[in-house]
Design a protein around this nucleic acid. Structure first.
Lengths: 230, 230
DNA sequence: TAATAAAATAATATCGATAAATAGAAAATC
DNA sequence: GATTTTCTATTTATCGATATTATTTTATTA
């Protein structure tokens, strides 16, 4: 079978499989606690075991997948209020460190990135519940870019890695439990306030706003989290 | 070939390969920046590609191995003063959070673990430079157990994972650059002071001592780090 | 009928082989 | 002589098959 590669997909089988798996877990297409059946995934993704297992193995380090005991495979990490609280606590602690340094070191390129991602994000007036899928995916992309841009100039690559992991871990909660609900909140203003403070090099304010932003999201998720998970 | 399994080795091929690789990188048996030749490792460890690559993939997430561009394999993460400074900064930030909570929540089992690992560690009067290998490996084991025990009761599993990763990352510097040097320092006293403060539930003191302990080690490594790495 | 054991089934972990890509060496060109 | 090009050798990434382990089903016994 001549494998006809989709032009948009590039890189190795491993990396595309990793992205695909991560996305399915973040969106909830593969739900919390769900068992990962290797043979089924292998068929669905049309790949062999090696790159599939390699991808899953990465997600284990990231905490999105749990490795059961030997010979008993993998499962998507379960969700719980405790886990969300921990992830939120860590995200606040680490993003504040990163943001503070980023504001300190940020150069022109950094400002450009912040302004640009902020601009793209602000173009989504209201997240139209009609044609959700496409728009949502785009919004999610820019939202992540925005948060990444803000802390991107901190010059601490290991920390950025941690922040990225924590973003994924909390993102899963938001996308699984907050997606289709009406939230009484002006996220747009929160974002622009953070961006403004950052660009004005007001580190203290920016960090405080960021903490509040992260905390508020977590609070809203906790409020709607099924009781059996609390 | 009937694969005769060594009785001491247990678990999957993957997990033993992961441990072995990690150890070789931490000790410097495979040095910083060194390329990982898959076929050579495969022969040395007598395993096949799948579990080998899976193990390497994990080490990439941990930051001990770098994945080069597609199709260009892996290399052990290089060392640099900047990286050591970052890892030190993060270790201090995160271990303090963990230690503070651990002191807050620690129960009898926690106290026992701390006392026990402290005791074992203190039995190594001076690290005899003669029969280094065996003694050093044992000391390294208890040293890690001690640090793990201190923060073990924090009830933040994700944080513990981060701390473990950071311990590895800084441990590599210590074992590669400080091992055979005489250090003008009473590490034993530092450890017992931290343990005492923790058991007395004096979180503030314990955290301060821990920060100093981590910082001091880093300072000494930086002092002897080859100039081209600074 | 409940509990246990045996057999069948399904899933995982690992292997050895193949295909694809890169890096290095030799030849050709300017 | 330096630079580019082609060919070869090495190395990586991926595959499909096999062996091992867990789970479910069926049969057996108390």
């Amino acid at each position: 079978m001549a494998h006809t590669k989709t032009p948009t997909e590039s890189g190795t089988v491993f990396s595309t499989t990793l992205s695909r798996l991560r996305k399915e877990i973040l969106t909830g297409a593969i739900g919390p606690g769900e068992k990962l059946r290797l043979d089924q995934l292998r068929t669905t993704y049309d790949v062999s075991f090696s790159p599939l297992r390699e991808a899953i193995s990465r997600l284990v380090s990231e905490g999105l997948v749990l490795q059961a005991a030997d010979q008993r495979g993998f499962q998507v990490a379960p969700v719980s209020a405790d886990n969300l609280r921990e992830v939120t606590l860590l995200r606040k602690s680490l993003e504040v460190i990163a943001l503070q340094r980023s504001i300190q070191h940020g150069d022109d390129a950094w400002e450009t990135e912040v302004v640009s991602s902020m601009h793209h994000l602000s173009k989504f007036k209201s997240r139209n519940p009609a044609k959700m899928d496409d728009i949502d995916e785009a919004w999610e992309g820019w939202h992540r870019k925005f948060h990444t841009a803000l802390i991107g100039a901190c010059r601490l690559p290991v920390l950025l890695q941690f922040c990225d992991t924590l973003y994924d871990l909390s993102d899963r909660y938001r996308r699984n439990f907050l997606q289709f609900r009406h939230v009484p909140r002006d996220v747009q203003s929160e974002h622009s306030a953070i961006a403004e403070a950052a660009l004005n090099r007001n580190a203290e304010l920016a960090c405080r706003l960021m903490e509040e932003h992260i905390e508020l999201t977590a609070t809203m998720i906790l409020a709607v989290l099924p009781t059996e998970l609390r």
